[in-house]
Design a protein around this nucleic acid. Structure first.
Lengths: 237, 237
DNA sequence: AAGATTATCTTGACGGCGTTCAGATTCATG
DNA sequence: CATGAATCTGAACGCCGTCAAGATAATCTT
């Protein structure tokens, strides 16, 4: 189901046979270029990739530090030379997810017919990513909630957060009304997150089918909420 | 010894603030009262309460089956006579949470100035509950996501789900347009969930302060999204 | 009232987990 | 080539979820 999901990620993960031996060798062979590789190869990278692979293949409950080490072909204690503890490793996996999500959002935004549609396309891309990598998305959000903030690189050029801010302005918001800008951005983010986590619920199945599939369903949901229609600040009195 | 343990448990719970005051039953030595009590007393109830207490006091990572049993004063294997496994116990804790949330939502709805305001009040009550019981809320949602559906009792009279449906109709929606009804209900739920999980993020702090606190912030967010304003189905073309 | 039956709880064990630490190995460099 | 630092291993600790076997108490039958 989520197999076709991360074609982009898959290339990155490609050629990773289960045992670490081959992986180690490959990494150490291409070593001399960057000056990065260490004793074992770039283990820290390998661990993150192994973590993601386990997440996709066997689900979040199987994602133990020991399993990751096993998959990477090292002892259970090895990761501790690259990450303070398990949660730091998981953070690294999550961060990669956020980066990919940013790229996906950028693509969605770029494919919009006009600036006013961009926000919806962004939302669709966001939800679509979350639905195709559910375990990863949960991990990402878990990490964010734990530290009670968005990932640090949210300010980066290709981050989803940035895309949203720009799209809102392009859609006609007044960039000088900081408060309204922030509200729009936050509201969009909250909404799209809710949809991402609930779109798979089974009680919505009939409606999904009536609308012709999950993507139309998501579109309808986002449109219905008027995700970024500019509107008076207080619709009720 | 079971008596003593459950006594400590009870006093500990009474120390806990906020809700659940009415919830705790009299587990004291009342032999032939309800026909329910068993060997130990109502252990299954006691376990759920212990679970909740640990969740609030020490966070989700401390919430182990063994810790719950310890807190309830029984052996680590005792819970297995009442719950199939750990996750079933957690489900029971979550279910209690959903019930409380339903009540909170009902109160919010009842306190609304007029039918059109009811939806916002519901949203505020929802987010407020989630923010006051963050660990419990996460647990609730985790359980729902795992089974990919809302809790079973969502159809009950005092469930939040029901309240939302009724409030939407009272606000003027056409109850015969099933599709639109469902969309409104789902969109509301998604949005409010997103706000609930993100309202605590630190990057929103300045905006919160500018708006005068967290509740105004939440109100602004919900209003901005036009959470339940009736609107044309496709705001963009 | 006494014995049989069932439900409940305890004890003890198993394997897996995250984490630590002392020691072995390999790398970079002088 | 020697030395010191970075990297990995092996074994150990305590906690976890879970299970099987036995002890204990409540309930039911007669």
């Amino acid at each position: 189901m989520s197999e076709a999901a991360s074609a982009t990620a898959r290339t990155a993960l490609q050629g990773a046979p289960s045992k670490g031996a081959a992986l180690q060798k490959d990494l150490s062979v291409e070593g001399p270029c960057g000056g990065r590789p260490y004793h074992h190869g770039d283990l820290s990278r390998a661990l993150v990739m192994a973590g993601r692979r386990i997440l996709e293949a066997e689900g979040p409950t199987a994602l133990s530090l020991r399993a990751v080490a096993r998959e990477a072909g090292v002892s259970p204690a090895a990761p501790y030379h690259h990450f303070k503890d398990k949660s730091e490793l998981l953070d690294a996996v999550a961060e990669e997810g956020w980066r990919e999500l940013g790229v996906a959002i950028g693509k969605g935004r770029g494919g919009a017919a006009n600036p006013k549609m961009a926000m919806i396309e962004i939302g669709v891309a966001y939800v679509s990513f979350a639905r195709q990598n559910p375990a990863l998305y949960r991990l990402m959000y878990h990490a964010a909630c734990d530290r009670e903030m968005m990932p640090d690189h949210a300010k980066d050029a290709d981050s989803g957060w940035r895309h949203v801010a720009e799209a809102i302005i392009e859609a006609g918001a007044d960039p000088n009304d900081e408060q309204d800008m922030a509200l729009a951005q936050i509201a969009a983010w909250c909404n799209v997150h809710g949809v991402a986590e609930m779109a798979g619920f089974k009680e919505f199945e009939p409606l999904k089918e009536a609308l012709g599939g999950e993507e139309p369903f998501v579109r309808a949901l986002l449109s219905h909420v008027g995700i970024f229609a500019r509107r008076p600040k207080t619709p009720y009195e």
